[in-house]
Write a protein that binds this DNA or RNA. Structure first.
Lengths: 158, 158
DNA sequence: CAAAATTAATTTGCGTGCAATTTAATATTG
DNA sequence: CAATATTAAATTGCACGCAAATTAATTTTG
């Protein structure tokens, strides 16, 4: 098993295993976050992506659908129905921008604003459960941002 | 702005921002992987989770649905229809276990086995696009595994 | 300024992802 | 050994996530 063919086979197997584990680690961590949030968000009747939208609005109220999408990385096809559900739940309102009728401005209701206070507790719980210091969390964030940027920038058309 | 109330407000705002960024970094990275794989998998008519199932089968053929679910973290509600699509595409076969008729054994077809060779190339492409050395990838994987383990172990019932 | 191009949301269609229910088969135990 | 409990898949229902098509409003430009 020391031929050239056998060696390249070994390298490929290593790449296979590593690639699988790296991709799957990210995949699992994302699901772990979703699951960790779920019981905390259930009592507000919110899903994780709905919560991400509210986090964005708590930092900057009155954004358009497009702007929200840029903030959290979702397109309007996902956001339109999601925002309707948030509206039905009474957390946000949606109004066409009078200055540009193509755009829809999403703004927090009083109920949506009130939720922010309780949401701080949720983030604290998640922070505790993640077992990270502020510095560790910052490092993980930076590493993943870098990874995301690299993957996004390379097109890799089949 | 140096009262006790103002200070705890500041701390909470920091937790809010950090928590949001950490959760979102993981969330974005997972989607970046999915998007990075998409053009490569499209020509085989495969989705990313379908590809994960095949990766698992290339390493250990003939697993039950439950075992596959444990390997990649999906339940039968997701796997049953997914496996039917893989079967319809001709990559796997499904047979009831004669020894225990409750179980369904999933095995690769010749077409499914043949795909493994090309899949090595996909992993290599992703590895290249991620811009990681084997060591860096290993560190990221370990960090995320640790994070996933911590989040999974803490129940946090609302 | 009118036709063409662009833009923002919405809608549609398909494939997850997961909780909860159902069905069928196997284990348990009274 | 028959009633009960457990287990593995499949099914159902709801909410993403994204591509593609549609609709309506605004720019662009000929």
């Amino acid at each position: 098993m020391t031929t050239k063919a056998a060696q390249s086979e070994a390298i490929s197997d290593e790449a296979l295993t590593l690639g699988k584990q790296l991709c799957f680690a990210v995949y699992s961590a994302a699901h772990a976050f979703t699951r960790a949030y779920k019981p905390l968000l259930d009592r507000f009747g919110l899903t994780y992506p709905q919560y991400l939208v509210l986090l964005a609005l708590w930092q900057r109220d009155g954004m358009t659908v497009k702007r929200i999408g840029e903030e959290i990385g979702l397109d309007s096809g996902t956001l339109s129905p999601l925002l309707k559900r948030l509206e039905a739940a009474g957390y946000v309102g949606r109004q066409r921008d009078p200055g540009d009728e193509r755009q829809v401005i999403v703004s927090l209701t009083d109920k949506g604003r009130d939720l922010k206070t309780e949401a701080f507790g949720i983030l604290a719980d998640i922070g505790k459960a993640s077992g990270c210091s502020l510095e560790e969390a910052g490092e993980i964030r930076e590493t993943l941002h870098q990874l995301t940027r690299r993957l996004s920038s390379s097109e890799m058309e089949g």
